[in-house]
Lab assay of single mutants.
Amino acid sequence: TTTLTYTDEEEARKAAEELKRRGITFTYTKRGGTWEIRIK
């Protein structure tokens, strides 16, 4: 499992869109002031 952490929502959203485009499965979690993208 790879976890990407972002403090900028815009960056996190761009990363999530890129992963979706590649067909990669991930979970997206907001934790306080950070956003976590966990790639399975």
Results as ranks from 00 to 15, higher is better:
Thr27His: 07
Phe26Met: 02
Thr29Glu: 14
Leu19Val: 01
Ile39Pro: 02
Glu10Met: 13
Glu17Tyr: 09
Thr27Leu: 06
Arg31Val: 15
Thr25Glu: 15
Tyr28Phe: 15
Glu10Ile: 12
Ala12Thr: 01
Glu36His: 05
Glu18Leu: 09
Glu36Asn: 03
Lys40Cys: 15
Glu10Leu: 12
Thr2His: 12
Thr34Glu: 09
Thr2Met: 13
Phe26Leu: 02
Lys40Gly: 13
Ile24Arg: 02
Glu36Leu: 11
Arg21Phe: 06
Thr7Arg: 05
Arg13Gly: 04
Trp35Lys: 00
Lys14Glu: 09
Arg22Tyr: 06
Ile24Tyr: 09
Gly32Trp: 03
Glu11Lys: 08
Ile37Phe: 03
Thr25His: 14
Tyr6Lys: 00
Gly23Ala: 03
Arg38Asp: 07
Lys30Leu: 05
Thr3Pro: 03
Lys14Ala: 13
Ala16Cys: 12
Ile24Lys: 03
Ile37Val: 03
Trp35Ala: 02
Ile24Phe: 07
Thr34His: 14
Arg21Asn: 08
Thr1Asp: 13
Thr2Phe: 11
Ile37Lys: 00
Thr3Ala: 04
Lys30Asn: 10
Arg31Glu: 11
Arg22Ile: 06
Ala12Ile: 02
Arg21Ser: 09
Ala12Val: 02
Gly33Glu: 15
Thr1Tyr: 15
Arg38Met: 13
Ala16Pro: 00
Phe26Thr: 01
Thr5Lys: 08
Thr3Trp: 08
Thr27Gly: 03
Glu36Val: 14
Gly23Asn: 05
Glu36Trp: 05
Ala12Phe: 15
Glu11Val: 06
Arg38His: 12
Glu10His: 11
Glu18Trp: 14
Arg22Met: 12
Leu4Ala: 03
Ala15Tyr: 09
Ala16His: 02
Thr7Asp: 09
Gly33Asp: 15
Ile37Gly: 00
Lys30Ser: 08
Gly32Asn: 14
Leu19Tyr: 04
Gly33Lys: 10
Ile39Gly: 01
Arg21Tyr: 04
Glu9Gly: 07
Glu9Lys: 05
Thr7Cys: 10
Tyr28Leu: 15
Leu19Phe: 10
Ala15Thr: 09
Trp35Arg: 01
Glu9Tyr: 08
Arg22Phe: 05
Thr1Asn: 10
Lys40Phe: 15
Arg31Gly: 06
Ile24Val: 09
Tyr6Asp: 00
Thr7Val: 08
Leu4Met: 10
Arg13Lys: 14
Ile39His: 02
Gly23Ser: 03
Lys14Arg: 12
Trp35Cys: 04
Glu9Ser: 04
Arg21Val: 07
Glu36Tyr: 14
Lys14Pro: 01
Ala12Glu: 00
Glu17Lys: 09
Arg31Trp: 07
Glu10Asn: 12
Thr5Pro: 02
Ala16Leu: 09
Thr5Leu: 13
Thr2Lys: 11
Thr5Gln: 07
Lys40Ala: 13
Ile39Val: 06
Glu18Met: 09
Glu9Trp: 08
Ile37His: 00
Glu9Gln: 06
Gly23Phe: 03
Gly32Ala: 08
Gly33Ala: 13
Arg21Thr: 07
Thr2Cys: 15
Arg13Trp: 08
Thr3Val: 15
Tyr28Lys: 06
Arg38Gln: 14
Glu18Gly: 06
Arg31Ala: 10
Leu19Arg: 01
Phe26Arg: 00
Lys20Gly: 06
Glu9Thr: 02
Thr34Pro: 02
Asp8Ile: 09
Thr5Cys: 10
Glu18Cys: 10
Glu11Asn: 06
Ala16Phe: 08
